[in-house]
Design a protein around this nucleic acid. Structure first.
Length: 798
DNA sequence: ATAGGGTTAG
């Protein structure tokens, strides 16, 4: 494990400002430090307010009053231990009496006293008294810029943006603090246009103000605008600080400009902006992790003087994100202190990396550890249950969310909907959906996706039409739903509707749409879609390029397919696999194998689907030796052949007449329940008239799948080919007896090739779609404020 | 005394 460290414990939480009705004598429960001051006050009160006060005497009296109020407040929001909460909360009556004295003596009209009354009531969570104090303050002409700033911030904290805005607009003069508060509140609610208006209108500037704008733009995915504000800020001579740098780095990273992000990190570190700032260093660990620079992330962690739970959790995630789930688990157990986020992080990563079983088991471990659950933890473990189709476990978690009162949280309920749909329980998903009081778009999208997963496109379509608002994910969901359910024409229709609605299609949209074109063998449509990707400037994306090349190959236009492939600036394993598969499917076995060899010369490692594609090429070319060679090479790449690879090998061997070898290999198959392989063998037995192996294969096939029609058909064919007409007829009769029907004229070879291309294209679809969440770039244009796109081509941009 | 940031997440 890593070097021992000191652990910074978080400061104890301030006690909640619980207010109880006051019955007992005030002095009894008074905070000790208040007692002498109260005495002073009492003396003063006994003397009474100056009758003909000199300015000096009045000010002094007001100051006493103000400092007492400050003490009341400090006792509430200060670092008191929870045990003494009740005695502190009794400072409210003192504050009330101070207020009374202030009014009677006239010092309430003092600006300082008036402000302290406001902040004191706010600290005691007495909004009615606070509001009255504010009105009195305004009436007594004692309101300062601070008074207004404070009230604006109070309304924002309460979530009442309209009230904040009304007050802000009515202020005698707006300070930069109020501007900052308003702009930040608007940005956090996505009202970018309003925030921009205030930004342009604000004559002043401060670090916090500019930083709020930068972070606001970054939050709304308008990264270039964020950088524009940074530029303005430097131009106006305001010096950035550590917070500004964090926001700017976020904007660069969000815009995908990692080299800019890194140079700013370097600059900030060199200028000592990030020194000893534990939170910023924690963020740096995360940033390096996201960039895949594991070594740099470890370096930051190792060099930190003080580490807290967040640092350790960030370290855990460096391991987990890099795929080292074991390492991450070790960190989890070795860290000096862990919280629910630490557990949730590891659970989420296990789920993402495909180890759903581990996610579920960590969840139980977490409960056993007495750790409280978390909304994000619920959604991860529910996703894990969904992929395991663990309805029982999922329902148990559902019960727990009900108990904890968070079952209708949009995050939790979206995951519940997904879990029920993946377990084929659409009705339960619908019930969960119906009970969400405030559904957001994701809830709708989840249910639509769930219905299409279950092949219920009518319901999916109905929901899609009914939903109050759609985002790009909604369109992607319905389009890919149609594609998955092989309603390719509907997919293209939806794509047109999407364009007509003004929603800009993204990379995910194109991967589905191109798959639809490929399946319709509609090169014309595919070319139009291709043109659209060029117009949108996303044809260079690996995912779009792969889908394009795949579409052309599937449509039989290999020239275009190769052209796209060759022009791609970046290729990944999916890209190569698609091209290898495309060549093989179109009968260019040798070329396909040559391309596979080209791929071996690159840095990109092949995956199991790549091997499936090249084995398919061998099988088409009848290249038994080559197939055996590649099959054996798989292990060297750390890939263990799956049932599909065995099926393919059995097919290669069987079709070359090597029936004994094929049977031997089949017996070695790890998952022997692979009916398809036996069917392939049986099919070859009929071609080569080998009754002995054929009957064994048929027996196996019948054991594995009693209802497998193909088995009976193939066996009957085999008997027929050997001249055993009686047996053949018997088979047909047997089939009729158990009311099986021969599936329409589709030979095994056709079936096999269909199965392979389906497997590969499903794999590619998943991988093309897993580009990560496609972020909406829509929003008001930074330069002209009106146009709804960051890439607005307005003249202002020049 | 009031303003801006930083670990997980559909």
């Amino acid at each position: 494990m890593r070097a021992a460290v000191r652990v910074k414990r978080p400061p104890p939480r301030p006690p909640p400002a619980v207010l109880q009705p006051v019955a007992k004598a005030k002095s009894e429960m008074m905070h000790p430090t208040l007692a002498p001051l109260l005495k002073t006050l009492k003396v003063r009160l006994a003397i009474g307010p100056p009758l003909a006060p000199t300015a000096k005497a009045f000010k002094s009296y007001a100051e006493t009053c103000a400092s007492l109020l400050r003490l009341c407040r400090a006792a509430v929001i200060g670092t008191a231990s929870p045990a003494s909460t009740s005695s502190f909360s009794t400072n409210l009556p003192l504050a009330l009496s101070l207020h009374a004295h202030a009014v009677r003596s006239g010092v309430a009209a003092d600006r300082s006293v008036a402000s302290h009354l406001l902040t004191t009531y706010a600290a005691f969570a007495r909004s009615a008294e606070r509001d009255r104090a504010f009105l009195d303050c305004v009436a007594a002409n004692a309101a300062s810029s601070f008074t207004y700033d404070f009230m604006v911030s109070e309304h924002v904290k309460a979530g009442d943006i309209p009230a904040a805005r009304k007050l802000f607009d009515g202020m005698p003069e707006r300070s930069v603090v109020s501007y900052t508060t308003m702009v930040d509140a608007l940005m956090k609610r996505g009202c970018v246009a309003d925030a921009v208006e205030l930004y342009q209108q604000c004559p002043l500037g401060s670090v916090a103000f500019f930083t709020a704008m930068i972070s606001g733009f970054a939050r709304n995915e308008l990264h270039r605008s964020a950088l524009g504000v940074f530029h303005d800020m430097l131009g106006s001579g305001v010096r950035p600080n550590d917070i500004t740098f964090v926001c700017v780095i976020k904007a660069c990273a969000g815009a995908g400009d990692f080299s800019a992000a890194m140079s700013i990190v370097g600059l900030a570190i060199k200028s000592n902006f990030f020194d000893k700032n534990i939170e910023v260093q924690n963020y740096l660990i995360t940033l390096y992790r996201r960039m895949g620079d594991t070594a740099a992330a470890f370096k930051v962690f190792d060099e930190m003087e003080v580490k807290d739970v967040v640092s350790w959790t960030a370290l855990l995630d460096v391991y987990a994100d890099a795929g080292d789930l074991d390492g991450a688990r070790r960190v989890l157990h070795a860290m000096p202190e862990r919280n629910e986020v630490s557990w949730a992080t590891l659970i989420a990563r296990c789920e993402q990396k495909g180890d759903a079983a581990e996610a579920v088991s960590l969840y139980s471990e977490m409960l056993a550890d007495g750790c409280r659950t978390n909304i994000s933890c619920f959604s991860s473990v529910l996703s894990a249950s969904a992929s395991l189709q663990d309805l029982r476990g999922g329902a148990r978690i559902h019960a727990r969310t009900l108990k904890m009162g968070c079952s209708t949280n949009v995050f939790v309920s979206s995951s519940l909907i997904d879990m029920y749909c993946k377990s084929n329980k659409c009705r339960d998903a619908q019930i969960v959906f119906d009970t969400i009081p405030q559904k957001n778009i994701v809830c709708w999208n989840s249910l639509i996706s769930g219905y299409s997963y279950n092949g219920k496109m009518v319901e999916a379509e109905d929901l899609f039409n009914k939903m109050p608002a759609r985002n790009s994910a909604s369109w992607n969901t319905i389009i890919s739903g149609y594609v998955q359910n092989r309603q390719f024409v509907d997919a293209l229709k939806s794509f047109n509707a999407m364009l007509a609605s003004g929603q800009i299609p993204g990379k995910i949209t194109f991967s589905s749409v191109l798959l639809a074109c490929a399946n319709l063998c509609s090169v014309e449509m595919g070319k139009m879609v291709h043109a659209k990707t060029i117009k949108l400037g996303i044809e260079d994306s690996v995912f779009v390029g792969t889908a394009l090349s795949d579409m052309y190959a599937k449509s039989g236009d290999l020239e275009s397919s190769k052209k796209v492939f060759n022009q791609m600036p970046e290729r990944n394993d999916v890209t190569w696999t698609a091209m290898i598969q495309g060549l093989a499917e179109n009968g260019f076995a040798e070329e396909s194998i040559l391309l596979f060899e080209d791929m071996m010369a690159t840095e990109i490692p092949p995956n199991e689907h790549t091997f499936l594609a090249v084995l398919f090429a061998c099988s088409h070319g009848g290249l038994v030796e080559q197939a055996i060679h590649y099959f054996e090479t798989m292990q060297a790449w750390g890939l263990s052949p799956k049932a599909k690879h065995y099926t393919c090998m059995v097919d290669v061997l069987a079709r070359a007449g090597q029936l004994t070898e094929a049977e031997d290999l089949l017996m070695k198959t790890p998952s022997r329940s692979e009916a398809n392989s036996w069917a392939a063998l049986l099919s070859a037995c009929s071609t080569f008239r080998n009754e002995e192996i054929g009957e064994r294969a048929a027996k196996k096939l019948r054991e594995l799948e009693k209802d497998n029609t193909a088995g009976y058909v193939l066996l009957s064919n085999m008997y027929a080919s050997c001249g055993r007409w009686k047996d053949a007829a018997e088979m047909r009769l047997l089939m009729k007896g158990i009311t099986l029907k021969k599936e329409g004229g589709c030979s095994w070879v056709q079936l096999a090739s269909l199965a392979w291309s389906l497997a590969v294209s499903q794999y590619m679809q998943v991988h093309i779609c897993e580009t990560g969440a496609q972020k909406a770039f829509d929003g008001p244009c930074w330069d002209c404020s009106n146009v709804a796109s960051i890439d607005c081509q307005c003249e202002a941009k020049g």
